[in-house]
Each structure stands twice: as C-alpha cells, then as structure tokens.
Design a protein around this nucleic acid. Structure first.
Length: 588
RNA sequence: GCGCUUGUAGCUCAAUUGGAUAGAGCAACGGACUUCGGAUCCGUAGGUUGAGGGUUCGAAUCCUUCCAGGCGCGCCA
C-alpha cells in the first residue's frame, strides 16, 4: 500500500516540482506518524525540498496540499501540520480493499518486490571438536533468520557454514586424538566409542594447556597443521572421522533449534584448501604482497598498529601454513566467481569487525572479487552475558553448553504450559513446551538490537506478556481457538473484511505494514525490527479481540468480516514467526 | 596509545536512519468480565536521552571535547 501511495504522490506532484526545477523524486517518501491521530501517513518532502526549490517549506506544503486534496478516491482528509508536514488520512474503503488484496495472496505479498539477487550468508560457523555453546547461539539464529527473510522476498540464498576445521585448533585435537584412533583400529572398535564429542573437546583443552607450557608440543602441533594442510593421507582420514563425529551432535542441535543448515551447507575452511595457494598467487599478481618477518602479508594504510605502523593482513605464515584471513579471502573469491553472489553476509560476533574490515579491504585492493559491485556486509553482534554482567559461563567458569541451556528452557516452558493449561494431553504439552521454550530463547535474542550485549534470563524470556515469544504464540493460539469453536477450517477461509470499528482498522493497517517490515529487515539485517512489528501486531489483535466480538457479532456479515480479519492476522503472525524460525502452536 | 562499540523512565528495551508532544513491557497505582482462552484489555504516574559545546526550520540520532563501561589491535580463529 505504501509503495502505491508513494507512486501516486509522485505522479501527482511531478509537474509542480518540475516547475521548481526539481527532477529527482527520491525525496518522496511517506512514514507513519508517531501518533495515530495525525493520519495514516505523513510526508516531510516540503521541508526537505525547501532549500532546493528556494521556497519556504510552508508555501511548498500548501501547494502540495492543494494538489493532493484533489485525490478524493484515496484520501478522506489531507492537512498541513507543524513546520510543513503533510498528514494524509485514508478512506476506510481504501484500507479494506488493500487488506483484502493482501489477504488473498499466498505469501501475503512478500514476493511482490521481485529482488532476484543471489545472497551468500555465512553463519553459525561451528568449530570441529567443540560442543556448541552459548557463543554459537547468536550467529546461528540471527543468520538463520536473515537467510529466511532474504529468501522469502524472492532471492536465491546460499547458506554457508564456515566450519572451523582446518586451523591450529584442529591440529591440536589431532595431535591428541591420533594415538586413540590407532588404538580404536587395533582393538577394532568404532572411533566414536573412544572419541565421543565430549572427549574430543577435552583433548582440545588438554592440548591447548600443553602447548602453553611446552614449546616442543606447540611446535609439533604447528608441524602437524602444515602436514595436514599439505594433504597427508592418514591425517586426512583421521581428520574426516573427527569431523563427522563432531557434526552429528551439531545437527542434533540445529534440528532442535529448527535451523536450516545441512551437510550441503558445510563449506568450512578445509573446503578452500586447494584454493589457498592460488589466492595468495592472485594477491601476488596485484603487487600488494609483502614479505615481513618471514610471513607474507598485505599492508593496509588505513589500519594502524599499536606502534603506529600500517597493520598487516597475514596471508601465509612464516612456516608456510595459511591462517584465517586467507580462508576468508579464498571464500570471497569462490563466492563471487563460482557462486555468483551479489551480496555476501557474514554473521559473527562484534570482536571480528576489524578482521572483516581488513579482509574486505584486502579483497578489493588485490582484485580478489569477480565483481566489484558485490556487497560485502559484516553483521556483528554483542555477547550474551550472565546475571553478573560478564560473558555467560557456568559456575566453574566453563562455557554453557547449548544443549543443556535449551533443555532447561524446554523444561521451564513445560512447567508453565502445565500450569496454564493442564487440560492438554501430556504428549501435546511436551510438544508445545518445545515450541515455547525454544521460541522464547530465540525471540529473546532476536528481539533486541543485535549491536548490544544482553543478559540471559529465563524468567524474562518466558514471561507471558510484554515483547516475548509466548505472548505472540498466545495471540496466535487464541485466533486458532476462535476458528475451532466456529467449526471452520481457517486454511480454507477466503471471505473478505471491511472496516466497521477503529480497532479493526488499526489491525488492518498494521497487517498492511508486514511486507515493508520484512524488506527493511533484509536491507538492514536487523531481525529485531520484525520482532517489534509482530509484537505491535499481536497487541493490535489483542485490543481488537477485547473490543470486537467475533463469533457473537451483531450480524452474520460482521462475523464473516471479522473472521476474515482474524484469519489474515493468524497468517501474518504465523509467517512472521516462521521467518524468525519460531513455531506457533494452535493450542497452548 | 590507537581504533571500534555502548550509555534513553527504578529495571529490560524501542524510536521508521535528521522529523512532530522520545514510545513499549516489567515493577507501582487505578479501572474493565452474566461474550469468542484474564497467558487479556484500558488508564495514571514515571525523562535535562551520561555531561558540555556546535551544525539547522528541527538532534537521542550528525560534528566536537570530556566522563563511564565493553571489545579489538602480526603469524589463534
């Protein structure tokens, strides 16, 4: 609706603006005023243009007003407010008509924009031989939402799980694990029996400790890494075994979280192993490669070290091994040349901002990218903190395992569901507890501006009111309940609605904002915008629900109209939650 | 030291990227049910947007100087 309105205004005002010598029309935009009493939309173009048109904003606004006032089919009223805002009030029929049009579309009009870009999203990026812990949560769920959102708007999305499987940590695990693998072979027992993921993680910790205290061990690990990266067949086979053992557990968590990552999305560091040398050669060709203290680097003037010297990006270490910057550069090459990405999005924590700035700058300077117009976007996010305002850890100082955290959320949700709705079967309560518990954890994370750190609190995220997942799920369940009571299948309900009360109108207007909200999330890569929207939608519904009886409406027509409104609200809520990777139960 | 980032109601967070009287939830107080799920709705109160200065029709948002927290800065990822 907003787009149509903008194009209408554009068309109407073009001659006037041409008279002022203004041909560019980007300035024509409308926004929802802060206060409903100021109309459905407002426009500040008069103020923005006053300078270019050399005309006082009020005069310009008056001239615009005169033209817009002729448009009787859309506006019931247009008026000037403040220093030159133009406030527009739409006819109820316009709202209803737009609403019915959107309602009839299978995807609520999400694909209407036809974006058709290829976007690569790099997220989750778990490490091999490490159990998933809270540190992996944000990248995994934020990335998953961004992928769903961009995909839903009609783009091709390629999800990439950039596994940490080819660096020094991997070498340290191998250093400890190889003897155990040999033992397993001698005794003819499956490797995973002797080396479950938890054991692998212990080995990694032991190795780190040993390397710290013993230079000889550290040296051996570095050598082992070089051998692995050079393709030692036995090491490769061991490496593969460990990777698979590790990923089985990761996929169990992905399924629990309802995150859309599979084996086909695995494109870890090791994937680029044969492209690393090539990538360095490519950099060498650009003339930017410099040898420094035995390492091969690219120096970037815009980044300065502690001592005030230009900061290097190391592309090849002095021992010949490659490190993470090279993996990222090789990945950029692959993603632009082979995957033909128009946009590449990296979802990692905020500590890596400098790293990605350097990688992006290096790629551009050294001509690594197939297409210079490709958008490279780092999506940083803050940390998850404990009640003590420090990064969340267990009492003993360990990382909190994701698996345990999620189980606890589900347990707590089960208690709440049982308390609130003991009438449901136990089996169904368990199902709902999963949707509510996981939904709460995800929503608590997603609903906040990702820049900030946040304090993890089960109590707050499982609260039944306020901006939480259970509140949204509850609104959805109430709508389903109406249809159940009426004996109508909402999936086949195709009636139309029209405005007869203020609460209905407000709800319709809110629903009409859905597509533009999703588009905004895709553009800004900030899921909390969608959360805020859904919360407002659920609130608008709750108000409507309180004031407008549906099944007991005064007339059959009114009942049908309100059912139609309920149904589209239900679809919008469910779709919005689905984009957030959250399931909305029919009963809870 | 340099760089990035954050600071908004007692608490947890928003604010359409420079727009109108800075909005929600929790907590507090007061209302609403012989109706569809009260896990609800409506209202009251609560603010020098960390502090100062600047830019302009207009600043939480941009520039600048401070204050306070978090993070990063050559062979870990």
């Amino acid at each position: 609706m907003k787009k149509q309105l903008i194009s209408l205004i554009h068309q109407k005002l073009a001659p006037l603006m041409a008279g002022y010598g203004i041909q560019e029309f980007d300035f024509i935009d409308v926004q929802v005023p802060p206060d409903r009493s100021k109309g459905d939309f407002s426009m500040n173009a008069a103020m923005k243009l006053a300078k270019a048109a050399k005309c006082p904003p009020i005069k310009l606004a008056q001239e615009m007003l005169a033209i817009l006032n002729e448009e009787k089919s859309w506006f019931s009223k247009v008026e000037i407010a403040g220093p030159g805002f133009i406030n527009m009030y739409l006819h109820d029929d316009v709202i209803s008509a737009n609403f019915n049009q959107i309602s009839a579309l299978p995807d609520l009009g999400l694909k209407g924009g036809q974006q058709n870009e290829t976007t690569v999203i790099d997220y989750s990026s778990v490490n091999i031989a490490k159990q998933m812990h809270v540190g992996h949560l944000r990248s995994t769920i934020i990335g998953d939402v961004l992928a769903r959102v961009i995909e839903a708007l009609g783009n091709r999305v390629i999800r990439q799980n950039h596994l940490g499987d080819w660096g020094l940590p991997m070498a340290m695990v191998l250093f400890k694990a190889v003897p155990i693998l040999r033992k397993a072979e001698r005794e003819n027992v499956p490797a995973e029996n002797l080396l479950p993921l938890s054991r692998l993680e212990e080995l990694y910790k032991e190795a780190t400790a040993e390397c710290k205290n013993d230079e000889e061990t550290a040296k051996q690990c570095h050598e082992l890494l070089v051998r692995l990266q050079q393709g030692d067949p036995q090491l490769l086979s061991d490496w593969k075994k460990i990777t698979r053992i590790s990923m089985i557990e990761v996929y169990r968590i992905y399924r629990l979280l309802d995150v859309k990552l599979n084996e086909e999305n695995e494109c870890g560091e090791s994937f680029y192993r044969d492209m690393l040398a090539e990538t360095v050669k490519e950099i060498e060709k650009s003339g930017k490669l410099v040898e420094s203290q035995g390492a091969r680097c690219v120096f970037l003037d815009e980044f300065v070290s502690k001592e005030g010297n230009p900061l290097p990006v190391i592309v090849q270490k002095s021992d010949g091994a490659f490190n993470y910057g090279t993996f990222d550069l090789a990945a950029l090459r692959y993603r632009t040349h082979r995957l033909k990405a128009h946009r590449i999005v990296y979802v990692t924590d905020a500590r890596q901002v400098l790293h990605f700035k350097q990688v992006f700058a290096t790629a551009r300077i050294c001509g690594i990218l197939a297409d210079e117009t490709v958008a490279l976007e780092h999506v940083p996010f803050g940390s998850i903190l404990g009640e003590d305002n420090k990064p969340l850890k267990t009492r003993s100082g360990e990382n909190v395992k994701l698996s345990e955290l999620l189980d606890e959320a589900i347990d707590k949700a089960f208690q709440v569901v049982t308390e609130k709705n003991a009438g449901l079967t136990e089996e169904y309560r368990h199902e709902v507890a999963k949707m509510v518990g996981i939904g709460a954890v995800k929503y608590a994370d997603l609903s906040q501006n990702r820049n900030n750190d946040y304090v993890f609190s089960f109590d707050r995220m499982l609260a039944l009111n306020g901006n939480t997942a259970p509140y949204l799920q509850y609104a959805h369940a109430r709508i389903c309940s109406i249809f159940r009571k009426a004996g109508i299948d909402p999936g086949n309900f195709v009636e139309k609605a029209r405005v007869s009360a203020a609460a209905e109108r407000d709800l319709m207007v809110k629903i009409l904002e859905f597509t533009q909200t999703v588009e905004q999330v895709a553009a800004e890569l900030r899921p909390h915008i969608l959360c805020n929207y859904l919360y407002e939608l659920a609130t608008a519904f709750s108000t409507f629900y309180d004031r407008c009886p549906v099944l007991a409406a005064e007339s059959e027509e009114l009942k049908t109209s309100r059912l139609a409104l309920c149904n589209t609200t239900r679809k919008t809520l469910a779709k919005g939650l689905e984009l957030l990777g959250i399931t909305a139960p029919r009963e809870m």
